[in-house]
Design a protein around this nucleic acid. Sequence first.
DNA 1: CGGGGTGTTGACGCATGTCAAGTATGGTGG
DNA 2: CCACCATACTTGACATGCGTCAACACCCCG
Lengths: 242, 242
Amino acid sequence: MSAPQAPSPHPLVRKLESITQISAEERAALEGLQIQTAEFKADQDIVREGDQPSRCFLLLEGFTAAFKSVGDGRRQVSAIQVVGDIPDLQSLHLKTLDSGVVALTPLRIGFMRHADIRELITQFPSLGGAFWRTTLIDASILREWVANIGQRDALSRMAHLLCEIFMRLKAVGLAKDRSCPFPITQGRLAEATGMSAVHANRILMALREQEFIEHARGRLTVPDWDRLATAGDFDPTYLHLQ
Amino acid sequence: MSAPQAPSPHPLVRKLESITQISAEERAALEGLQIQTAEFKADQDIVREGDQPSRCFLLLEGFTAAFKSVGDGRRQVSAIQVVGDIPDLQSLHLKTLDSGVVALTPLRIGFMRHADIRELITQFPSLGGAFWRTTLIDASILREWVANIGQRDALSRMAHLLCEIFMRLKAVGLAKDRSCPFPITQGRLAEATGMSAVHANRILMALREQEFIEHARGRLTVPDWDRLATAGDFDPTYLHLQ
DNA sequence: CGGGGTGTTGACGCATGTCAAGTATGGTGG
DNA sequence: CCACCATACTTGACATGCGTCAACACCCCG
């Protein structure tokens, strides 16, 4: 009756379809999942370290970052999320959040109740596998971040991060050709790469001077992908795309 | 007939019992899971980056480390595993391994086929949740490592790592009182904390001189836990014990 | 057209890396 | 039981990448 392969307007279906085969039934169930949308302004905390949420949220529009604060007040960003990501999906099985999530831009998000997700998974175990898989990909990215921060020098480190974000945006259709939206301040990039804001600035300027990137007004352009990927020692295997 | 609460000799049951309630039926199913044991010598690779395994392994005895190599040949350890851990459980849903696992000591491990685990989970979905949860805890630890490596100075960083390993060993009953086995070389600790081996040595000596730790012949002793925890800015919430 | 956040720049110090030369330690074979 | 070897650990001298501080420039947004 309906066109069977119409591109789904539903962001959660899109997300999981990029991960696994979704049957018509599962798709219907996903589309029936109750989602409560909300908007946030830039720099607002969506959830905080220590929270015990009963729902998690799907990022519908904008960018977020997960972060932890350490003793002396410094912050480390441990992940950056783009459209389609579910930043706190781990709260489904871990009662207490071990990191906060902050809006990097104005956001539109969709809350999904844990109870509803659990019911969905009970009914369609293969969807449970898909959700599980997304958290495993997040963990894989974290391992790469550990290696990135632990071993690469500042220039490679930053280049690597830029490669990752660019490629993940491409995967969700937000990167056109050689450029993508990039509304992330140098301060945040510094927190994500474990360097000072001043040094992040110098490294970004070096990357621009040597024409690895163009970066202005919230857009990132990569004139020569291979060159940037080489500088960042970037191998996308860990993203487990496709 | 049998004593219902006899401490299970089965390591997988022990692991999952520390995470969730296990019914008698589930326990029986877990104990029936086919496990093929194997032994490895120190420094052998159990699995390698790029492998596509059809089984994963449970660590029965010894210590392992997950690691990635970066471009210039340096290595970063992204996790250290102790008895009861399943270092490559993510391979259940991610086809290609994004990091290798190496034996830090002589090992005894038990291989479990993906197919068997999948069947088990299909039959007992709540066990699936327990397995999922273990991978989420691993991810939580990775977030803490990102923060540790990214933000803390060398002394706190090392102290934090020592706290984590000590507490995880305690959780599986391997730490007696104030001391635990610690067969990890300074070179590995350096790879885990993202510092050079020489610097790791100096930091460990500083920790010993200031009596934060005693560390010799494969044993670590912590004379004053609170003092070490303070030095390492250590808060165990992220381990999600209990 | 004003102001707060963001980006830029320079001077300087220090934590950490590197290189190189040892010294302990523990396992192995004679 | 000892000699030997490989691996781990230790130490010093030196270089440097990066952090800190402080001032300033820019640019959007109201």
